[in-house]
Nucleic acid binder design. Structure first.
Lengths: 206, 206
DNA sequence: CGCTAATCTAGAACAAGTTTCAGACTTGAT
DNA sequence: ATCAAGTCTGAAACTTGTTCTAGATTAGCG
């Protein structure tokens, strides 16, 4: 009954051995690679297992479903993104602009691997309750990136609401782009539009 | 090669016979019923076929995939919603409040059949490019409902952007609620927050 | 009415996610 | 070094979405 079931970074990761950690990495790598090639559908569990040299049963022990796997893949990529952004923070003047700048930068990164983006985002929004903890973790990570961009130490509830709405817009706009129903320009406009909410909550208000 | 492939209401519906129309209705009814019982997973194509007294192949002729079927189900429900709202329009004073009121009313309707909501919303966000026309139709319908609530004849581009962001928030907030990651209260706050965008674009500006 | 094309049916077959199982291998503790 | 518990492997089985096929039925037309 004692499964690895590892979360990527922080909390309750039940201490993997070195070989297990290596397996986990191989799996995530194979997953990302297949996803980058053909999106959600191209990530086939049998193939992931084969490419990462792991038995199918083992794959399922590490990631209890395809969606779990892809959400974990997303956690992984987000981590990269966060460290990247930290290294070169957004340069604009207002918080709203800095958030928009950061999201647009992330968006451009996703455009470089649209299939990978497809796989991750579809998994994220398709996830049911059994994946909630993992999806929540992704959400927290995203929130952290946005708050970083705002450069606030102590966000008000109103500001947190605005951030939540920005995240909603971000995810949903990505989906419309990925399914070909919105252009890149359209996504840009939507992001800029929603970021105006920040101005609404920012200035003189405790 | 000539398939029914019917859209629900307006445009290019290739004229179904009476029996075909009846089949289509039976299918949508069975779909909604199963969805209401157990959500996305409970809508199983074989069962839909059986319940609507139609062969599996026929079901697939009418709706080329499970997602198509559920999106069509959503179109159907949205139509209801729209006529309902028209009969008793929102009563608040400002456009922003009227939109929030309308969306909250829709939200309460969804709460009455959370499983059905789950099936429809998951299908909507999981839909790939092959379902784009149908998803787009749903989006247009939603936009129409929101614009109705705003009581505008001639929305500016900025207002249309705001509406788009509201839709994004609406969908994404529903997902977080359906997957148990946000409370009803939380969704309410998010809707109210995003509706403030309307005030930003409304008053004195041509 | 009688024909022809399109549609519908029943059921098999296929694809990919998921589960299961018996046996081999690792690990950690004694 | 040895044993027990936990893990991993390979392969088969199961589930559900989707496709295919051959034969009935239906619809529209002359």
């Amino acid at each position: 009954m004692t499964a690895p079931d590892a979360r990527s970074s922080a909390q309750g990761a039940p201490a993997l051995t070195e070989r297990q950690e290596a397996r986990r990495r191989r799996i995530l790598h194979a997953s990302a690679q297949l996803a980058a090639r053909g999106g959600f559908d191209a990530v086939q569990m049998r193939e992931v297992a084969e490419d990462s040299q792991v038995a199918l049963g083992t794959l399922y022990r590490y990631f209890p479903s395809k969606v779990h796997l892809l959400v974990a893949t997303m956690q992984d990529q987000l981590q990269h993104m966060h460290t990247t952004v930290r290294k070169r923070p957004p340069s604009s003047d207002s918080p709203a602009e800095r958030v928009a700048e950061t999201l647009m930068r992330a968006f451009r990164a996703l455009q470089r691997e649209p299939h990978l983006a497809d796989a991750m985002v579809r998994a994220l929004t398709f996830a049911d309750r059994s994946v909630s903890p993992e999806v929540d973790q992704v959400s927290r990570q995203t929130t952290a990136i946005i708050l970083d961009a705002m450069e606030l130490d102590d966000p008000t509830p109103a500001q947190l609401s605005a951030v939540r709405v920005i995240e909603h817009t971000w995810h949903s706009a990505l989906i419309t782009w990925l399914s070909g129903r919105a252009s890149i320009a359209q996504v840009k406009i939507d992001i800029e539009t929603v970021c105006k909410l920040i101005d609404l909550t920012d200035p003189g208000r405790q």
